[in-house]
Amino acid sequence: MIRPTLTSPADPVAQPGALHPARLKVTGLTRVFGGRKVVDAVSLEVAAGQVTCLLGPSGCGKSTTLRMIAGVEHADAGEVVIEGRTVAAPGLHLPPEARSVGLMFQDFALFPHLTVAENVAFGLRTDKVARAARVGELLERVSLTGFGQKHPHQLSGGEQQRVALARALAPRPRVMLMDEPFSGLDNRLRDGIRDTTLDLLKEEGTGVLLVTHEPDEAMRMADEIALMRAGRIVQRGAPYNVYNAPVDRAAAAFFSDINVIRGVSRGALTDTPFGAFLTPGHADGAEVEIVIRPQHLSIDFDRGGRGPNPTPMEGTPARGTVLRSRYLGRESLVDFAMDHEGAKLTASVPGVFLPKPGTHLWLMIRRDRCFVFGV
């Protein structure tokens, strides 16, 4: 079974940009409101062409962190270094326009009285010919050639998003700061716009810090995820590592539904519906939680291993009674009340599987996909 540990900052898998110079380096960034640290000693690095997602629930301090890096808000402590130049430190605060950063927000923030071309050219400080050439190049790259003379109100949400991207890229920023930039788009548009945005940013070699509260978006876009909670980064690493080795129960639950089996460790073993689990490192009598995701439970019609999602499993089969089942399109979820001390578990099955409430079925568990945490 998996015993989660905090991913080491030296881990080359967890730090995909570690071999390249940092475009952005943040050290000990702190912000205090009303005596409470809303951002508490946040440190991270973003390399050229790397996308780091600052991921966490609403109110955890993500956007405040981004605003301090951008220079829109003052930090109470810490340093921000962009391309080797310190732009924020005790006694130093450069304004946003002096930081060589691009900014993208969820409301697009286009100027309604300017044309598309004028919006894209707004931040450029070059001559007219060079400005027109850069605007034309970017509109072509975001598939908006011929839209230059339109105004924002004449565009769809996806088109406005691409104009905002072109405008942010126009001055060739070394660092792009993005705060929930895709949340205003419907699901049909979102994936395509995200992929286009990611391709362009990587082509430009821009270091990207993206704020999001959506784990799926972070997993899709990020080279590195910095998981944030209550103002602090609690775990950093490559998406695979953060998902498969969560630092605690809350980190596991942030990425997916989970099942939690509680027990007491005795002699480094904990009794569960699926037999005894090894729980080394926990004192005798200590309460522990064994966490497993629904897709790592297998349903069998009997104890012989014949069921709708046969997978190599381990340990003792456990009988449960179906409470309800529902079909979600790609998978079905089945809730069970287990015979063992009334534990309740949920299993997911690819495709359609809708047993009736009251049906008795057997479950088995992927022990190599379980996480054990102290309570």
Rank of each mutant, 00 (worst) to 15 (best):
L269I: 13
S325H: 03
P280I: 02
L269W: 14
V81F: 14
R134P: 09
S183C: 09
V142P: 04
D302F: 03
P112D: 06
N309W: 02
N244M: 07
N244I: 06
E73P: 01
V288I: 08
L177K: 12
T126I: 08
R167C: 06
A238W: 04
V120L: 07
A89K: 01
I233A: 08
F277E: 13
D199C: 08
M313N: 08
G136N: 06
N259Q: 08
G136D: 04
G192T: 12
G342C: 11
L165I: 12
Q160D: 15
P152G: 09
R324N: 15
R172H: 12
T145Y: 10
T197Q: 09
A226C: 11
T52S: 12
R172Y: 06
S156Y: 13
Q15F: 12
E73R: 08
P16C: 03
A230K: 13
T316L: 12
V242L: 10
D257K: 15
M228H: 00
V135R: 01
M68S: 00
V26C: 01
E214M: 12
A22P: 01
G146V: 00
M313G: 05
P308A: 08
A48N: 11
T206E: 07
E331S: 15
T316K: 15
I365F: 01
R134Q: 15
R326N: 13
L114I: 04
A70G: 10
V163H: 15
R236F: 10
E331T: 11
V349A: 06
L94W: 14
L29T: 02
Y243T: 04
L29Q: 00
A343D: 14
K202I: 12
A117W: 03
R125F: 14
L210S: 09
F33K: 04
Q160K: 14
C60F: 03
R31C: 09
T30D: 09
A283Q: 08
G34T: 01
A18V: 12
L124H: 03
D76W: 07
F274W: 07
P273G: 08
A48V: 13
L354S: 05
L19S: 14
I193S: 01
P280N: 05
P246W: 05
G192I: 07
A251L: 07
V349G: 06
